[in-house]
Nucleic acid binder design. Structure first.
Lengths: 205, 205
DNA sequence: AACCGGCATGTGGAAAACCACAATGGCGGC
DNA sequence: GCCGCCATTGTGGTTTTCCACATGCCGGTT
């Protein structure tokens, strides 16, 4: 779903028309405030693929202010944000790109080019949702571990023998064996190697 | 080393003066072609921290053309590229940022702000060099393995028992044991878990 | 008081990994 | 012809991991 945010009715209408003609579902908002309220509501469906296409300059809250609020509140993180701008403001474009904006489109724009970028942004949204799904599942499993299991896990993925882990934690090696088995079961793996591959990139966190 | 590339002598001089006043070593080039020749030469020292500060519009080869050539030829990848631009060209700024340019600075610029950005870019260069060092060492170790050792390694980091690896490769389990030990020694690790953490992010490559 | 979950420890035994040492054949380079 | 390396296999033995089952203490909850 392409979310169009622009205070100019004519532009909203023409964009809506263009997207309908390409079978891209869209919804228009006349102001940043209106979209922000929608994003905060349970009806926003942030777990579905989406894209935010928003004008930079609008009456009331600007596009960049909205972008900052969405980021600060963690709203709709899987939806790439594309800015529409008629005013060639390079520092602002550079700054918001660095802060995570997905693209900048200058007005007037070429219809086909815009649609291409929106479709690529939708694909990116799907990728983000898939990555979050996987990460979330892993996070949920980690959250299911008890404190002691986490202590043991941290040492297991460093590659230590159970005997060493026992010494470090001041418990029996047999205890470590039991924890190890429970960790494997809860994390859905069959070996410490799988654990390390799954969590190895989290080292230092 | 800050590499200044601009066809305007006055700007090269003033930038050089500014950087000298802040104890930042710099070298100026009057054209993109001149810098490209330097970058291609053995005197470029791409393994030292550096930054490329270059104007967008120059006689002859433009800044963006130079940027593309550096990327295409893999020259000085550890040196972040900052563009100087007087002409607010948003599409070009967006496009080159997406292609890896580090920053865009609009003229006229604030001296302190520019210096801050250059120092941050130098820090980024150091981070890139450190990361490459580590990655390169790992690559070198991987390159030292024989073909058969690599076959075994791939299965070890998937978490398989030696017995399973032996069956898959059609060799004796004892043979796998010997290879395993050699792999650990060559890769500088003590266990399969360490290997998985080191190489786990390479899966799918 | 009873129950539950977390944390801890233990027995028994099999399977797997690790370490050291030794050996063979093929192949390519000198 | 000799040498070094790769690939492969083996013996012997110890250590570690895995699996199953059993038990107790403590604190919190019902």
């Amino acid at each position: 779903m392409i979310h169009i945010i622009d205070d100019e009715e004519a532009l909203r209408d023409s964009l809506g028309w263009l997207l309908r003609s390409r079978d891209l579902p869209s919804r228009a908002f006349a102001s940043a405030e209106a979209f922000l309220a929608h994003a905060r509501s349970p009806l926003a469906a942030p777990d579905s693929p989406g894209v935010i296409l928003l004008d930079v300059r609008m009456d009331g809250m600007s596009g960049t202010e909205l972008f900052e609020k969405l980021a600060a509140e963690g709203l709709c993180p899987a939806w790439p944000v594309l800015f529409l701008t008629g005013h060639g403001d390079v520092p602002m474009a550079v700054e918001t790109l660095k802060q995570g904006a997905y693209d900048f489109v200058e007005k007037p724009f070429n219809d086909n080019s815009l649609v291409d970028r929106l479709m690529e942004a939708l694909a990116e949204s799907k990728r983000r949702l898939a990555a979050r799904e996987e990460s979330g599942s892993r996070e949920a499993r980690l959250a299911s571990l008890t404190d002691r299991e986490r202590d043991v896990l941290a040492l297991v993925i460093e590659g230590h023998y159970n005997k060493v882990i026992a010494d470090r934690l001041g418990i029996a090696m047999r205890t470590v064996e039991v924890y190890r088995a429970r960790i494997f079961e809860k994390m859905g793996v069959k070996s410490a190697v799988e654990l390390a591959a799954l969590l190895g990139s989290r080292r230092g966190e």
